[in-house]
Amino acid sequence: MYSTRETMANKEIGLIDILDVILDKGVALKADLVISIAGVDLVYLDLRLLIASVESLVQSKMEGRKTISSEEFDLEKEALIDATGQPDKWKN
């Protein structure tokens, strides 16, 4: 039998988890990634750019499945009725 640790250690990990760890301050923070390159010892590469691209990746993924379920439809309908005031509510 595998220990909990082994089971967890072999679990698949998503890109986002990896980016959160290997990028300087994680995906959710605006931070600078330190690179040392081409004659300048330390260059700060603004991570905001990177965060933007991670978020746009997620968004484009989400847009891919834009079919609306009947549940969502009902929710939106309810919200509309709510916003306009339920007609039968005012009858009393």
Binding site: L15, I18, I35, I37, L50, S53
Partner: peptide
């Protein structure tokens, strides 16, 4: 091949590259 501009460009606009390289690093 790895100038600062190239890295910025790739990290900013090339998610496929970022994914491949991030996995490699990890």
């Amino acid at each position: 091949n790895y100038s600062e501009e190239m890295l910025k460009e790739r990290i900013n606009n090339d998610m496929e590259w970022l994914q491949e390289k991030a996995f490699h690093h990890h």
